[in-house]
């Protein structure tokens, strides 16, 4: 699922990611609708976010590469954001942020918007989600999530 940006005339745009030498692969993949996670070239552990030193093996030269993941995960927590502290979100509030533990590795957690919205039935601890994307500008997509059924298919959450 891809959500179109809700642009309102005269409204500022949301903060756009600035890809860098480490993260460019992540944003390129996201633009193509693929969720990736940094993986250490030494020990193969995933890391969110990728830092200077691999938290799993301690390498100071982890040579991170962004590799596709299933996009599946479990909701560990959520909040409904009702005040926008950043530009470009005024038209979006209230919106849901979910803390998701990805299927690939224990405690591999990221935070994204839940595109089902604040009133989504089935939003609970342990609910299955799958990756989704928001197109926020030409060629820029931000990873998000949507509720899924047990097999990871979107839109059939109970």
């Amino acid at each position: 699922m891809t959500a179109q940006p809700r642009t309102t005339e005269g409204q500022p745009t949301r903060p756009l990611p600035v890809p860098d030498a480490v993260s460019s692969g992540y944003w390129e993949a996201a633009a193509g609708g693929v969720l990736t996670v940094a993986r250490c070239g030494r020990c193969r552990a995933h890391a969110i976010p990728p830092g200077q030193v691999c938290p799993s093996c301690g390498s100071t030269d982890p040579g991170y590469g962004f590799e596709p993941v299933s996009g599946r995960g479990l909701v560990r927590s959520w909040t409904v954001v009702r005040q926008a502290f950043l530009p470009g979100f005024s038209a979006d509030v209230p919106f849901v942020l979910v803390d998701v533990e990805l299927a690939e590795q224990p405690e591999l957690r990221m935070i994204g918007r839940l595109l089902d919205g604040p009133a989504a039935p089935g939003l609970r601890l342990g609910a299955q989600v799958t990756a989704a994307f928001e197109d926020v500008a030409a060629g820029v997509a931000v990873p998000a999530f949507q509720l899924a059924d047990a097999s990871g298919r979107p839109g059939e959450a109970s």
């Binding site: 756009l16 890809p19 969110i48 954001v81 979100f89 942020l97 935070i111 998000a144």
Partner: peptide, 9 residues
């Protein structure tokens, strides 16, 4: 870049 684009701030 890992948080602000999705409104986690």
């Amino acid at each position: 870049q890992w948080t602000a684009p999705q409104g986690f701030f």
